[in-house]
């Protein structure tokens, strides 16, 4: 079984990568989880997972062609983590479409695939994770730009045939209930969790350790565990999902 989720937001800085890692760790109690840095242009998963010194990343898989994705897959915190590099050479030479093949290979061996997606809808490669995933998890902050961009991500996903798994309202301050209730009316899927703003998140990131390991008892960590608990993972056919990624015909525009 496998279900592929894109973790997405229209705006950077909403806590998308923090959410991807936290959901992955929480889901790893029940499932085989693989998390992938699909934001190949502005990778940062490696910083969150303490992998900034590893030699092989998704960039190598996407450039050389003969590097298997297994070589860029690291067992960390109970899940498989596929980071992307930040180097100039890696970015220049990377072929975004090779991402499809890499993700197809990963889909064959996981129950849950979480794709940390680019915080933009501005290019074909940026929307690829949304197009190819089964469902999209939309990460919001309680601000007008973040909610407005989150709505755009949702409408793109629905237009491209992906469903919405739910929203995570991240970095809320004080009583956010009335805002999240109002926002909930406009988003498909449930509000998976409301995650309070927390110094622990920043401290975890500086430490290169995921929040759920750095501060497992923090209210933010508890909220992410609730979000993971609210996600029912569909029992998709691994081969069918892998095949979808592998064979999706996405030609260059004329």
């Amino acid at each position: 079984m496998v279900e592929a989720f894109a973790v997405a937001s229209g705006k950077g800085g909403t806590g998308k990568t923090t959410s991807t890692v936290a959901l992955g760790m929480a889901l790893a109690d029940r499932y085989d989880v693989t998390i992938v840095d699909a934001d190949t242009g502005m990778a940062n998963l490696l910083f969150h997972a303490g992998l900034e010194d590893v030699e092989t990343t998704l960039h190598d898989v996407m450039t050389a062609g003969d590097v298997p994705v297994e070589a860029a897959t690291y067992d960390r915190f109970g899940m498989s983590v596929v980071p992307c590099g930040t180097s100039l050479a890696g970015f220049e030479d990377a072929d975004p479409e090779r991402l499809r093949g890499a993700v197809a290979d990963l889909a064959a061996g996981a129950d849950v695939l979480l794709l940390d997606s680019p915080a933009t809808l501005g290019s074909k490669s940026a929307v690829l994770p949304i197009v190819l995933s089964d469902r999209v998890i939309v990460v919001l902050n309680p601000t007008v730009p973040a909610v407005s961009d989150g709505l755009k991500v949702q409408e793109y996903a629905l237009s491209y045939g992906s469903d919405i798994a739910g929203t995570i309202f991240n970095r809320t301050r004080g009583d956010a209930e009335s805002v999240t209730e109002k926002a909930d009316r406009y988003f498909e899927g449930p509000t998976l969790a409301t995650v309070p703003e927390s110094d622990a998140v920043q401290a975890a990131r500086s430490d290169g350790t995921p929040l759920l390991k750095h501060a497992p008892d923090s209210p933010a960590a508890a909220a992410f565990r609730r979000a993971a608990g609210a996600l029912s993972v569909a029992d998709g056919d691994s081969e069918a999902v892998a095949e979808r990624f592998r064979t999706a015909v996405i030609p260059d525009p004329p």
Partner: peptide, 29 residues
């Protein structure tokens, strides 16, 4: 206003799918 944002995002998504040549990938889903 929110319905307006959603509507224009859907229109934009469709236009871009056309420009990026990904309609086929979407139809195959």
């Amino acid at each position: 206003a929110i319905e307006g944002i959603k509507r224009s995002a859907r229109e934009e998504a469709t236009e871009k799918a056309d420009a990026w040549g990904i309609e086929e990938a979407i139809e195959e889903r």
